[in-house]
């Protein structure tokens, strides 16, 4: 159970990092958590966040899976599509729907990360209740989600994000590298 909770915690941490504008508390946690991450002034961080993760502009690295995965008729990646719809369906199957105020496109990175956290937390919950069958089921869902949805585009996203310079963005580069490594270890662990 400890493992699943710890993993849940990390997913939550990452979801916040890529889904919410930076705050002093988050910075503090980043410095503590991500080795080698040097803090930058909050104002610059906020702007970096917008430029990198909200866009638009040259540096925008869209945090939507579909923009990396979707083949489309005119050769341009398009938002949504079947993959995103499938992700939304998975959310529903797991008993959750996207909260108000969150990105309405279901394959947003933060949502996918948070969903992993949800799955881990449910696993922990099942373990606590001693329901190992259910725990296995939740674990299986994690495996499938990692394999089919989160991992396939993450390296591309991180590569795009890492393709930028300057202080504040270094923080996001570090976070991205950290995330990539973690998810990679997850994939390895889940086979």
């Amino acid at each position: 159970m400890e493992t699943s909770l710890a993993r849940a915690s990390l997913y939550n941490f990452l979801a916040a990092a890529f889904g919410d504008p930076p705050t002093p508390q988050m910075m503090e946690a980043w410095v503590k958590t991500v080795p080698g991450l040097r803090p930058a002034p909050l104002d610059e961080m906020s702007q970096a966040y917008t430029r990198l993760l909200v866009g638009p502009g040259a540096d925008y690295a869209p945090p939507y899976a579909s923009l990396y995965l979707n083949p489309s008729s005119n050769g341009k990646p398009q938002l949504w599509g079947a993959a995103a719809a499938a992700v939304e369906a998975l959310y529903g199957e797991a008993g959750v729907e996207i909260a108000p105020g969150q990105p309405r496109v279901p394959d947003h990175l933060a949502l996918e990360l948070q969903f992993m956290q949800h799955l881990c937390a449910r696993e922990a919950d099942a373990e606590v209740r001693g329901d190992s069958a259910q725990a296995v089921e939740w674990r299986e869902r994690q495996r499938a989600f990692l394999r089919d949805h989160l991992w396939p585009w993450l390296p591309q996203f991180v590569a795009r994000l890492s393709n930028t310079q300057d202080e504040a963005r270094a923080v996001y580069r570090a976070l991205a590298a950290f995330m990539l490594a973690f998810v990679q270890s997850e994939v390895a662990d889940h086979g």
């Binding site: 915690s9 990390l10 941490f13 508390q25 946690a29 503590k32 958590t33 996207i98 949502l111 969903f115």
Partner: peptide, 14 residues
């Protein structure tokens, strides 16, 4: 995960 857990949690799903 310990340090990471300190990050406040928003409601991303309901």
């Amino acid at each position: 995960a310990g340090a990471a857990g300190a990050v406040a949690l928003g409601t991303r799903f309901v």
